[in-house]
Design a binder for these strands. Structure first.
Lengths: 121, 121
DNA sequence: TTGACATATTCCTATATAGGAATATTATCG
DNA sequence: CGATAATATTCCTATATAGGAATATGTCAA
């Protein structure tokens, strides 16, 4: 099987740096024409359209017609799953020396003292 | 160009649901042998080893040798970029009716009343 | 040493891009 | 209608998987 489609879910969609950049541009909640996004991110128009298409399919943005322009607007709510998942690990950068290490070290005390070598990939 | 490597950064690495699942298993900070992870997630051992390899390359987990076992441990700090990025949009699910819509609607008042049609993909 | 156990790695394949180039589509205007 | 502007879509290609199967590597124990 190949890698999952970028349009499968938000996680796959935002794995692309350019797409996150686009979302950042739309971050203020104001709608923007494709051309505005193009200028903001400095990518070719077809590329931006494709990225917006992906973002649209996962529901992170919405579109509105305005004459010959298409106004894209961020639909931030659909980024919540990413936030929620990441927040699960919040303790790791919040309390460095508290619960985590404490628990891990306590765990070590219950083991027999074995050689504990670090290694590289 | 093809899609970026899953080992390029954390965003690409965690785009895979199985890998997030593995990280969830390691979420308590305790180290675990591959076999324990295998049992926890119910995937074939080679698959788990490969996923762990990806997670290791982006630094989200660390390894330690313990006899013939390899103990993997979550390195939660490296998930912070995901959290930080997602947190940027926190307002979208925190205050639904406050700043965002307010600003967007204010913006609309400064425009000429044009047809504002929603559309589907 | 030999065998059993724990993991990693290699092969192979179907699939999905992302980017660039060119073109199609749709709407506005005179 | 014809030209122009704004976007989307199509083609093409190089690349990177995930998953399954089989195998290699490394370690411990008797």
């Amino acid at each position: 099987m190949a890698r999952a489609a970028t349009t499968l879910d938000v996680f796959n969609a935002v794995a692309e740096p350019r797409r996150r950049e686009i979302l950042d541009v739309l971050g203020d909640g104001r709608e923007r024409a494709v051309s505005e996004v193009v200028e903001a991110v400095g990518l070719p128009q077809p590329s931006v359209s494709k990225h917006l298409s992906v973002l649209l399919k996962v529901g992170v943005v919405t579109v509105t017609r305005n004459g010959q322009m298409r106004m894209y607007r961020l639909n931030g709510n659909n980024l919540k799953p990413v936030y929620d998942w990441a927040k699960t690990f919040e303790q790791y950068w919040t309390h460095q020396l508290d619960r985590i290490k404490e628990r891990a070290e306590q765990k070590m005390l219950h083991r027999r003292p074995d050689n504990n070598n670090q290694e590289e990939s």
